[in-house]
Amino acid sequence: MPPIKTLLFVSAALFANATLAAGTPAAGFVPDAAVQRAATAYAAQAVATARDQFGIKLDGTDASMAQLDAVLARVHIAYASKSPRPSDEQLMAVARMYGSYLGEVVRLKHGGAWGMATREGQTLPGMRTAAGTPFWPWTQAAQRIGKGAGYNVADYYKGLLNT
């Protein structure tokens, strides 16, 4: 198993191609404790950053997805207004943090697991819901930051719960 830093770099490189989406069947999923530990730490960082930088409380509830989307909307505005734009690696650093919060709420409230998920021949950190649906919360957060409101995380979350 490669070290988590390698896995995170791979996820950043894959985001640059914008190929991942929720609900796309995964050829394989393997729970991974290292990914879980990283996601837990990133999620805690998201809670602190949202509070300290934006005055927004992320409390781990289903309702907090609206607050998460509000944070990401503000991050998107900052991202879109920068010239030159932040690199994919910089964007993914923020996306990992907030995407981990999204994934941790799914896992803790509704069941699921972090691990390594394979899609289109590539294996990277992702999740599987308790119902078995694979999804990539880091990618969803990155798309919300980079592409805007069409990638609303509150709507995405609701969709995950209905699968």
Rank of each mutant, 00 (worst) to 15 (best):
P31L: 06
R37I: 05
N17I: 06
Q53H: 08
P3M: 07
G126S: 08
S11H: 07
L161D: 06
W138T: 09
A38S: 11
V35H: 01
K5M: 01
L108P: 04
F15K: 00
M97D: 04
L91F: 07
W138G: 13
P134C: 13
A33F: 02
K158P: 01
D69Q: 09
P2H: 09
E89P: 04
G111I: 13
I4H: 03
Y157R: 08
L108W: 00
R96E: 15
A141Y: 02
G132H: 12
V94Q: 13
T118M: 08
A70M: 06
A113N: 09
A113Y: 01
G146V: 06
R96H: 12
V106H: 11
R119A: 08
L58T: 07
A27K: 07
L108V: 09
L124T: 05
Y42E: 12
D59N: 14
L160Y: 05
G55K: 09
L14A: 10
G103L: 08
Q143F: 11
R119T: 04
T24Q: 15
M92E: 10
K109C: 05
G159E: 11
M116E: 00
V94E: 11
R144G: 01
A73C: 07
K57Y: 06
V47D: 05
P86N: 05
A26P: 01
T24H: 04
G23T: 11
A149G: 08
L14N: 10
G28A: 15
A141E: 02
R85E: 09
R128M: 14
D69K: 06
K57Q: 14
K5F: 04
A113W: 05
A41F: 00
G132Q: 08
A141H: 02
Y79R: 08
A18D: 12
T24S: 13
L58G: 05
M127R: 00
G60H: 08
V105P: 04
L160C: 12
K109E: 06
R107F: 00
L108E: 15
A80R: 10
A39P: 02
T129H: 04
G103F: 03
A130D: 13
Y42T: 01
D52M: 01
E120Q: 14
L124D: 02
R128D: 00
L161V: 08
S64E: 11
Y151R: 03
D52A: 15
A93Q: 12
V105L: 07
W138F: 15
L20G: 03
A26F: 01
N162R: 14
P31Y: 04
M127I: 11
Q67D: 15
Y98D: 02
F15I: 05
V94R: 10
P125G: 08
T61H: 09
K5A: 14
T163E: 09
K109P: 05
H76I: 03
A18Q: 14
G159V: 04
E104C: 09
N17P: 02
K5E: 15
G115S: 04
